[in-house]
Simulated assay, not measured.
Amino acid sequence: MSKARPYSTAISEVHADRVVIRGHDLCSGLIGRISLTEHFLLLLTGTLPSETLRRATDAAMVAIAEHGFVPSVQAARMTLAGAPEALQGAVAAGLLGAGSVVLGSAEVAGRLLAEIAAETDIEAAARAALIRLRETRATLPGFGHPTHKAGDPRAARLVALAHEWGVAGRHIAALAALERLVEPVYGRALPANVSAAIPALLLDAGYPAAALKGIPVLARCAALIAHLAEETERRLGFRLADQAIATLAYDGPAEGTGR
C-alpha cells in the first residue's frame, strides 16, 4: 500500500493517458469547447464561469492589454534587444514592474471599492475614504491619468457595459460615489481611470478580489508578446536607449574632479 500523500491541490491531476482540470477532462471536455478566458476562470475559481463573468473578464482584459509605449513595454523591448534569444525573459521584464502605480493599481483600487461597498451608506463611506486619503496624502488609486486628463474612455466604456449587461451593483455604485465626491473633497477634478473601472465591473460580476492583479498581468502579457514579435522586425529597443542618452543631461562632478 502506498503512503498517503501529505499535500494536495484542487487544480489539476496528470495521468499517463489524460489530464484532469478541476474535474474536467482536458482533451475531451475543454480543448475546442471553451475559450482561454473561460479556462482561466475555471482554473481560478474551480467552476466554469457564467456568461456574465466571462464577458466582464474579457472586457476588462481587452481594456487593459495595450496602451502604447508604457514602462512595461519599454522594459520588455529593451530586454529583448539585449537578449534576443530570451522572449520569456523579456516578457518577465515587462511584467516585473506591475505595482501600485502601473498595472497593479486595479488591485489597490479594488480594495478601496470593496471597503466602500461593504458599508450601508455608500455615499458617506466614499466621502470618508476620500477625506482620509487626502489628509494622509495617500494616493487615490484608480483616479487621474497623465494622458486621459479629461476622462479615461476605457473606464467609461467598462462602466457603460456594466449597466448594459445588468451587472452594475454596489462596487459600480461606490465608483460613482467617488467620482461625484472627488472634486468637492480634493478641490480639483480627478476622473476615474481604467484601473478603477476594472475592479468595479469585475467585483460586481463575481470575480474573486484576491486575483484582481491577475487581470492586468495576464492581459498585458498578450500585448508584450505582440510588441516583442514586432521588435524582431522593428528594432526599437536600442533606439529607446539612444533616445534616453540624447535627451539626458549630465549634472555630476566635472571631469577630473570626481573621487
Score class of each variant (00 low, 15 high):
E233V: 07
Y250G: 15
E230S: 09
G206Q: 08
L228H: 08
D242P: 01
A244E: 12
D204N: 04
A241L: 15
R235H: 14
A205G: 04
A209Q: 15
Q243G: 07
G206E: 04
L236A: 03
T247N: 12
E231Q: 10
H227K: 08
I225Y: 06
A211W: 09
R234K: 06
L212Y: 04
V217Y: 02
E230H: 10
P208A: 06
C221S: 15
P208G: 04
A244H: 11
A210C: 01
L248T: 15
Y207T: 01
H227E: 04
D242G: 05
L212G: 00
K213C: 02
A223F: 05
L218R: 00
Y207L: 02
Y207V: 00
D251K: 11
F238K: 07
R220K: 08
D204P: 06
R220E: 00
C221P: 00
Y207M: 00
L236R: 14
L224R: 06
D204A: 02
V217K: 00
T232D: 03
E231I: 01
E233M: 04
G206C: 05
I215C: 03
A241Y: 05
Y207R: 04
C221V: 02
R239G: 07
P208C: 07
I225Q: 10
E233K: 12
T247E: 11
A223Q: 07
R220A: 03
Y207Q: 03
I215L: 10
A219F: 03
R239K: 15
Q243C: 09
H227A: 12
V217L: 03
L224F: 06
L248V: 11
R235S: 13
D242F: 09
A249Y: 07
F238W: 13
R234G: 00
L248F: 10
Q243A: 14
R239C: 11
R235N: 11
A209K: 08
A209T: 01
L224H: 09
I225A: 07
E230W: 09
Y207A: 01
L248E: 15
A211S: 05
E230P: 07
E231K: 00
A222T: 08
A226I: 13
I245R: 08
V217D: 03
Y250T: 09
E230N: 15
L240Q: 11
A244F: 11
E230C: 03
A205M: 09
A223S: 14
E230Y: 05
A211K: 02
L212D: 00
C221H: 08
D242N: 04
A249W: 15
R234M: 09
L224Q: 12
A219T: 02
L212V: 06
P216R: 05
E231R: 07
L240V: 14
E230R: 11
C221N: 07
L224A: 05
L224M: 10
R220S: 10
D242K: 08
H227Q: 12
A241K: 06
R220C: 03
P216T: 08
R220I: 04
A246L: 09
T232Y: 00
G237T: 11
A210K: 12
G237E: 10
D242L: 13
A246D: 13
A229T: 13
Y207H: 05
E231F: 06
A241P: 02
L248R: 15
A210Y: 09
L228Q: 08
I245Q: 14
Y250F: 14
A209P: 01
G206W: 02
D204Q: 00
L248Y: 13
L203A: 06
L240I: 15
T247H: 11
F238Q: 15
Y250I: 09
L218P: 01
